[in-house]
Amino acid sequence: MMRHLRMRRHCPRQLLDENGLCPLSDLHPGQEAQVSQLCGGHALVNRLVALGFTPGTVVDVLQNYGHGPLIVRVREARLALGRKEAGQVLVKAA
């Protein structure tokens, strides 16, 4: 799990499927998942990790209507996350 933690600017689709990963924005409300990889530039990655999105962390999706921002729970804090940002967080669904 810890071995393939590389930062990439783009998350290629096929790579996602091979490793059983999917973007956080694809999860349904009530689903739990483990953070596996973060895409995007330094600025976004730094903000996300400071808020607790480190590899292995469990994320809870509280709200996702399939469009617009999501609400997730990370380390007991509720965060509103833009759909684009949620797409940069790759997770392994539990």
């Binding site: 976004l44 903000r47 808020l51 509720r78 965060l79 509103a80 684009k84 940002e85």
Partner: peptide, 11 residues
């Protein structure tokens, strides 16, 4: 510039 939307929803 796309401004990342990340915001805490406090209790």
């Amino acid at each position: 510039e796309h401004k990342a939307f990340i915001m805490e929803l406090p209790l």
